[in-house]
Design a protein around this nucleic acid. Structure first.
Lengths: 377, 377
DNA sequence: GGCAGTTCTGAATCTCTTA
DNA sequence: CTAAGAGATTCAGAACTGC
């Protein structure tokens, strides 16, 4: 099995190149395949200027059958090189996304989300014959229904001002200085994607050091953003002009050197601390009375790190669930202790003690290093 | 060939019923088929309450093959009953929309647009495992690449306050009084669609008197909106409980009697907040009579968000200016509506509705997009 | 009645580690 | 492999409760 050389562009047809890479070696695939646009003649704006549509050879297919065969080949090849914990992103429009989506489901990929790139500045429909085509669709999937995968939930939530990131993303088209131009001022690539789009994708679904593969690299947006965010990358591209432009572009990118700048740790990945340790270290003496925030229920701390209430005994979680009659409970945030704060007596969650202990252990160097990002089911 | 009886619900399996209808007799099909959700066990919110997921028998399929066969059967039957100038709408999620989209392309349907219903108030992802599933996808297609079809471009542009209607529509879920409930307070139907969605679809792709067919009628949203907008309709549904609820609902609808209220022959200009959204969201039903503060002039509201008076038609601003013989007019403050306030009937400016909508849109919080910046979708 | 706080709910493929 | 236990996790809006 060949080893995996990263941070380089492979020239050639993507399915063939992919078949020569080692299996289960890639963390994230981002694919921007030909859309099979099936454009008719040329399109004129109301002022009779010509719309520079996609008419390149790489977007010409005889029929759906040929496009489907092409799609299945590269998807299958991607499935092989993906790690079992890896995920695949594909972007497309209504011309091709149903073909792609159905094929990837048939190949066993498990759709996690479809994501809408809502364009803030789309090209209008000049003829007034349809709705302005103002979005593109991304499909995000894991290797199977039970596969674990990386989703940096907290990073996405932070990016969205503290609210869960939704499946619709409003971003402008790639224009202005970001858009690569030739010396004669022509677009280098007809469908260059905005870096903001790749920024969000890579931040959401990978960790620093991960390998991001783009089987249709084009002008190199994926590689440029991956490099900047401290990820390794692999690009596959046929066209030597695109490759030249991408190489120059990627070379000009300076990576963010501090990994903490490009990760938002999940609570799930923090070291686990048994409640018993809190008692053992004397942060909470046996016999201390805990209660919930509203003071409805109470329980006492036992020396072995279990709780005892009027009717129940067990872990902080078990007793919390039992007194509420709930199926489950996070005891750390449910149970509170009295604390003398300035003058008034207040109730604070015992999770504060866990946080203090984590800080102490980090200072001692005894705690396990928090893993970056969270691996999800 | 049987004749086409309209404005009624046929009970039975949709493909079988469709096969008994005359061919090429329907103008628009709107289909909301089972999504094949494949939900696992139960899901609890962070507060331990149970999510009432869709587990109905009609959404259970063995595998993709069975779902695909089901899909192809009803799509093929719809193709037969559609006029050559007819169009088909299908709504779905990532669970099924790729299967549906690929099959309808295979059957010869020609995709005109995919349209995103962006939900302003979706259910969150409670476990923090994915992006909030905040949208659904509609596919709109004609019978073939060269088929003519109805698209009321000007009506859609008017509804979007003078800007081309885009392929992404922001609308709230069907909740509150619009949501049908049983006597015991349960949902009549687990997936009732908002009337605003059907309002836009029917206004966009049909004319008064056209026949709208819904092969999965459910609680009858399609029929209710079609009737109100002066279209004929046909519903197909298996479940007798859904049928009973739909019949009662549809019977309570009063059609807009004047066809000129639901079509748009002329152009108009561009204010900042589309008055059409006020209409579409049901804050002001088509046919409502508006007047100026002194009661000197009056005009009626049309379904696309324009007004019609004795001598004039156009935007709220244009008609306001025209009736006064003034060069310009702010329709938002000029036009008033009657409101039942405490005991007395009063006239209040329709700007109140805009303010309410602005508050809602601000709460929707879409950040830097034009949508939150004023150009309502 | 009015206002504030609480509860409820919506097409949802919704955990991970250790024993 | 399964089972058990720890413990992480929510936004908008309507409906309801209580003062």
């Amino acid at each position: 099995m060949p080893s995996l050389k990263t941070d380089c562009i492979y020239q050639g047809a993507c399915a063939e190149i992919l078949d020569r890479l080692p299996e289960k070696s890639v963390d994230v695939v981002f694919a921007d395949p030909p859309y099979n646009l099936q454009l008719g003649g040329e399109l004129l704006r109301p002022n009779n200027s010509r719309v520079d549509g996609v008419d390149d050879a790489w977007d010409r297919f005889r029929d759906f059958a040929e496009y489907d065969a092409f799609t299945e080949a590269w998807l299958r090849a991607c499935h092989r090189v993906l790690k079992d914990t890896g995920t695949l992103w594909v972007i497309g429009s209504y011309h091709n996304i149903f073909r792609v989506g159905a094929r990837l489901q048939d190949l066993g990929f498990w759709v996690l989300n479809d994501v809408i790139w809502r364009k803030t500045n789309p090209m209008p429909n000049f003829r007034g014959t349809r709705f302005t085509n103002a979005h593109e669709t991304l499909v995000w999937c894991s290797k199977g229904p039970d596969a674990r995968y990386t989703f940096n939930y907290e990073a996405m939530k932070a990016l969205n001002d503290g609210l869960q990131m939704r499946s619709d993303w409003s971003l402008p088209l790639c224009t202005g200085p970001e858009r690569l131009k030739t010396e004669t001022g022509e677009k280098v690539h007809p469908t260059q994607k905005p870096e903001a789009l790749l920024h969000r994708i890579i931040l959401a679904s990978s960790n620093p050091g991960d390998v991001i593969l783009d089987p249709f690299l084009g002008s190199g947006t994926t590689a440029a953003v991956a490099k900047r965010l401290g990820r390794r990358w692999i690009g596959i591209e046929q066209d030597p002009d695109y490759i030249a432009a991408a190489r120059a572009r990627i070379a000009a990118v300076t990576p963010v050197d501090d990994p903490t700048l490009v990760t938002t740790p999940r609570k799930r990945s923090e070291p686990r601390i048994p409640f018993g340790t809190v008692v053992e270290r004397g942060l909470l003496p046996p016999g201390t009375v805990l209660s919930d925030a509203a003071g409805r229920w109470s329980a006492r701390v036992r020396a072995d790190g279990t709780l005892i209430s009027a009717d129940h005994r067990g872990s902080i979680h078990q007793v919390g669930a039992a007194v509420q009659g709930a199926p489950a409970c996070n005891g750390w945030t449910f149970w509170h202790m009295r604390t003398q704060d300035t003058d008034a007596e207040r109730l604070v969650p015992i999770d504060l003690l866990r946080q203090r202990l984590r800080a102490e252990m980090a200072a001692e160097g005894t705690g396990t290093t928090p893993e970056s990002g969270g691996a999800l089911q």
